[in-house]
Amino acid sequence: MHANSSVIIHPWPIVQIGLRSVLQSLKIEIRELFTECPDCKIFAEWSDALILIDVNYWKYILKHQKFLGKRNISVVGLNFNSHQNFDVLLFNDFIYHNDNQNIILSKLNKFSGSGNQKSTSYQLSPRESDVLKLVATGHSNKQISDNLFISIHTVITHRKHITTKLGIKSISGLTLYAVINNLID
C-alpha cells in the first residue's frame, strides 16, 4: 500500500515537527496537520494517504475504518503514552517513543510511493485487491470479468496469484482475509 501524501494527527507540536522531517526525507507530502481529530467530512476526502495518528484517537479510526481499504489509506499509530485497550488491527504499524530515527524511517518507508523500496512479492497488486474484493463478495469469474473489463483467463490468473501470495485457497478464507484487512465491510 503506497501513499503519496500524509496527514498527522497528534496533540504535541514536537511530534509533528519530528515526523514532518522524516516524511520529507521519504518524499511523502504532508497534506495536513491536526492537533485533534478533524471533522469527519475531511476524512472522507482522503485517498492514497498515510495517516499518522495518536493511538488515543483510535475510536476515530474505528469510526472510519470502512474507508481504509477502499481508499488505499494506511494508518500508523503513534503509541507514546497510551494505556487504553484498542484494536491493534486498526493500524498498519506503530511508532513507539523509544524508536530511533532508523527504525522510524524503516517503518514509514514501507508506505512511501517514492520507489525507495520495491513492493514485496507477497503484496497484492491493486488489481489483485480488486479481484479479491469481488471474490470475497461472492462474484463468479464471469461476473468479475464483466465488472473489471478483463478476460476470464486474466481473472483466473489473478486468483492464482492471490492464493499463492496469501497462502489462502478457499472462498471462505479469502472472505475472512478481506474483512480483517478492511477490503470489504
Binding site: 496469501l166 485457497k169 479469502l174 480483517i180
Partner: peptide
Amino acid sequence: ANVETEISDLIMIIIQHIPAHA
C-alpha cells in the same frame, strides 16, 4: 476438500494476524 482447505486457511490467517502485545 472444502473441510480440509478451510481449516488450513483459518490457521494461515491467524498466523498472519496475531496482534502485537497479544
